[in-house]
Computed example of a mutant assay.
Amino acid sequence: MGSSYAAGPGVGRRDGQSRGCDRSLSNYAHLLAARRGLNLVDVGCSGATTADILQRSQDGFRPQIDAVDADTRLVTVTVGGNDVNYVGNLLGYTCRHTGGANCKIVSDAEVDQHFQALPGSLRRVVAEVHRRAPKARLVMIGYLPVLPGSGMPGCAAVPLSLSDLRRMQAIYSRLTHVIGGVAQETGTPVVRSSMIGSDHDACSAQPFVAGYQPPATPGWPGPVPYHPNQAGMNRLASALDKTLGAGLDLSLDS
């Protein structure tokens, strides 16, 4: 379940049944399912917020949580970034810096309000997964970093003013801490994507995420800036597999 960082727009082969959700057939969930021989139900959807998981229909699909039932044995979720307009503002500030028109930016005050609500929303996602699937293992996966670490300079792949770079570095750090904090509070394992991608941001020599003007992937409508690439999805799948461990029993009899 989750947002575009789970769905994988622009990565590998496109799932033709996913409509506006733009799911990839080689996102981390598909890679893990193939590695472990799991029966995957992928409901990740680009643009999703916690509300789209819990109660809201998106792109004609039911709320994502409806895919979870008593037979579910593993749930993975990457969500929260859209609740606080993380990628949206990253694109908006880039648009402004590069001379674009009608750049959409949510104010710092509104972003802060969204952050105040985010921990409670994430806790509700965790609680609802456990209510519907009491035998399931839940793992939260954080967001891979687009930007270099706090205080580090940007690069041509991420065209931002210095002030906007610092602002977005702080937003990413806050988002990472909120997800990690809720995971710790609820006893939920978490894949710490901020650490996995710390030397693989969009400015690095081997990025796990695309910069602002990546090449388009064949089979997709166009390029997808500021999102995980295939290398990033591969690394997340490996980290998720390691988090689950060798002895995990996902059979329906467990």
Rank of each mutant, 00 (worst) to 15 (best):
G232D: 07
D112T: 14
G180W: 10
R14T: 05
P214G: 04
V106M: 10
N89L: 03
P214F: 04
I53T: 10
R19D: 15
I171C: 10
L91R: 14
N82D: 13
A29H: 03
K135H: 15
D15V: 01
A6E: 08
D108F: 01
L25M: 11
L144S: 13
V126T: 08
R166A: 15
P214W: 02
P189F: 11
T94K: 00
D71E: 13
D66K: 13
P221F: 06
D52Q: 08
V129I: 09
R19T: 13
Q113F: 08
A205L: 11
M233C: 05
D71V: 07
Y93D: 13
S198W: 00
R19V: 09
V191L: 06
A33L: 03
A70D: 11
T72Y: 04
L144H: 11
I105N: 07
L248G: 10
E110C: 07
R174A: 12
Q230W: 03
S3N: 14
P134Q: 03
P225N: 06
A48F: 03
S24G: 10
C203N: 05
V178S: 09
M233D: 13
S254G: 12
A51Y: 08
G142C: 01
L40I: 06
Y212A: 13
L122Y: 10
V125P: 05
L240M: 02
D59I: 01
K104L: 12
L236Q: 13
H97T: 10
G47C: 01
A101E: 11
G80A: 06
V75D: 09
Q206P: 00
N234E: 14
H200Y: 09
V125E: 05
S46R: 10
H177Y: 10
L144Q: 12
P159E: 04
R137D: 11
H177F: 08
L162T: 15
G151R: 07
V182T: 08
N82E: 07
N85I: 00
N229Q: 06
P189W: 11
S4C: 02
A156D: 12
M195Y: 12
W220I: 06
H177N: 15
H130Q: 13
